[in-house]
Simulated scan of single mutants.
Amino acid sequence: MTIHIRQETEKDYLVSAQVVEEAFEHAAFSDHTEHNLVANLRKSDVFVPQLSLVAEDEGVIVGHIMLTKLMIRDGEKQHESLALAPVSVVPGHQKKGVGSALIRKSLEIARDLNFRSVIVLGHDTYYPRFGFKPAHTWGIKAPFDVSKEAFMALELVNGSLDQVKGTVMYPKVFYE
């Protein structure tokens, strides 16, 4: 298996949607509409095309990841960050490093684009391997009731969250 990661193009959208749908088809903590979220995020002002990536195995798309803009609000202060959601790998390619490769590449590109941090709601035993820590470490809270361990943040630049605290404000498209 040789995985190639590249920026998603419009021609990939249909296949990417199928990948996302397949990836979450049997997920326990899913409403099974992640593919709709991806489609809606692409049409929104928080979409960053360079941070929508696909993973190919011999020319076939087997994974997808998307990072989009969000804000962390503390009263009148707002700090831009990114949401990592979702990362998807078709079942036959799961647990083979495809998701990890997508995450690493997307974080590298986000740094290159001068983003300073990333927020994720996910498995607290998986994301720490990429440097994510519970967001409450910095005084960052979720806008809804969720396990503190599963709501995580990552500094793309050392110290970038030291002066940041508040509540993550997901764009309205996350709630549609």
Rank of each mutant, 00 (worst) to 15 (best):
K11Q: 15
V38H: 06
A142V: 04
T2Q: 14
D162A: 05
L121C: 12
E25A: 15
L156G: 01
S117V: 12
Y127N: 03
F144S: 13
H79N: 06
T33R: 14
E80M: 07
F47Q: 00
Y170F: 11
H93P: 02
L154C: 04
K77W: 01
K96W: 04
S147G: 05
E34I: 09
H35Q: 10
N40E: 14
S81C: 00
L84N: 07
Q18P: 04
V15E: 15
S160Y: 04
E58L: 12
A55V: 03
V38L: 11
P134H: 01
T2L: 13
L102K: 08
A17L: 04
A110C: 12
D74I: 06
E176S: 15
D112L: 07
K105F: 00
R104K: 13
Y170G: 01
S160P: 06
V146I: 14
N36H: 13
K11D: 14
S44Q: 10
I5S: 00
G166H: 02
N114P: 06
I61M: 07
T167Y: 04
P171C: 13
S44W: 13
H93T: 12
Q18G: 11
L107Q: 02
H93M: 12
H123G: 08
S52A: 14
S106V: 11
L154M: 08
L82I: 09
W138K: 07
S160R: 04
L121A: 04
Q50M: 02
V120G: 07
D162M: 11
L121H: 00
S100F: 08
K69S: 10
A55Y: 03
Q163S: 15
N114E: 15
P49F: 01
V19R: 07
K96T: 03
G59W: 04
